[in-house]
């Protein structure tokens, strides 16, 4: 097994074991979706109309919440230093970590989306559209968040700062994710246009994220 695969498997194992917290994100997501009707009233028509937006905001906040543990635990137990000194390129190492992180926090959100869509009275097309856009969009959220995690990992109270730094960068993903979902449900726009732009954003973040995060980790040490 290569070093990268070992790192990947290790991260997934840590996330799914007791105390790993892979499912807390989904729980948080559920709580946000459950809170919305209390805030705006149990009007099913209104909930249906803004359902995609609620689901996207919930997923955005849930994946943001989980970012804190993306690199912090490795800093605390010293394995981050090993990654920095090891022979594996740091860019690939953080990319493997982010991928494992997405599989354990992002993907459960996507899988849970059809269930939560029921609460918001979304029909089959809308549910499929939201789940599809989340499937494509949440990797972008994780990889953009990876930059913020790399920047703030050595700070004592980095959690809130991380959110403040990452959220503005995630605005385009949110815009095109919700736009593509709405385009599939009501919109005059064809679904493909915003969806393809969302895919492009994800691909860009897959490239920029690991490089910027690796640079931040190297520069931030000393």
């Amino acid at each position: 097994m290569t070093a990268l695969a070992a790192l990947f498997v290790r991260d997934i194992r840590i996330a799914v074991r007791v105390g790993g917290g892979a499912m807390i994100g989904v729980l948080f997501f559920l709580t946000i979706v459950a809170l919305m009707p209390f805030a705006i009233g149990p009007d099913l028509a209104l909930l249906q109309r803004i359902g995609p937006a609620i689901l996207w905001i919930g997923a955005l906040l849930a994946s943001l919440l989980a970012l804190d543990r993306l690199l912090t635990a490795d800093l605390e137990d010293g394995s981050l230093d090993l990654l920095l000194m090891g022979g594996t390129p740091l860019e690939l190492a953080v990319a493997a970590k982010a991928l494992a992180h997405w599989l354990t926090t992002g993907l459960p959100l996507v899988i849970a989306t059809p269930v939560f869509a029921l609460f918001l009275n979304l029909d089959l097309t809308a549910t499929a559209a939201v789940a599809g856009t989340l499937f494509v969009g949440t990797p972008a959220l994780t990889f953009i968040g990876l930059i913020g995690a790399g920047l703030t990992v050595t700070l004592r109270r980095g959690g809130i700062l991380l959110s403040v730094l990452v959220l503005p960068l995630a605005i385009p993903v949110l815009i095109f994710g919700v736009a593509a979902s709405n385009a599939a449900i009501v919109g005059p726009l064809p679904f493909g246009t915003p969806f393809l732009i969302l895919c492009a954003l994800t691909l860009v973040s897959l490239v920029v994220g690991p490089f910027a995060a690796a640079l931040a980790l190297r520069q931030g040490q000393d």
Binding site: I147, G150, L151, L165, P168, L169, I171, P172, I175, F176, A179, N182, G187, L189, P194, I197, L201, V204, V208, A212, L215, A216, Q219, G220, D222
Partner: peptide, 30 residues
């Protein structure tokens, strides 16, 4: 160290500002 970390954020922001501008314009026309 603050300078180096802030520099990375600044450059990531510089890449992102045109993307944000374009997305916001797209969103606005909707």
């Amino acid at each position: 160290r603050a300078a180096r970390v802030a520099a990375i954020l600044t450059l990531v922001g510089a890449i992102n500002i045109p993307i944000i501008k374009y997305s916001v314009e797209f969103w606005n026309t909707l």
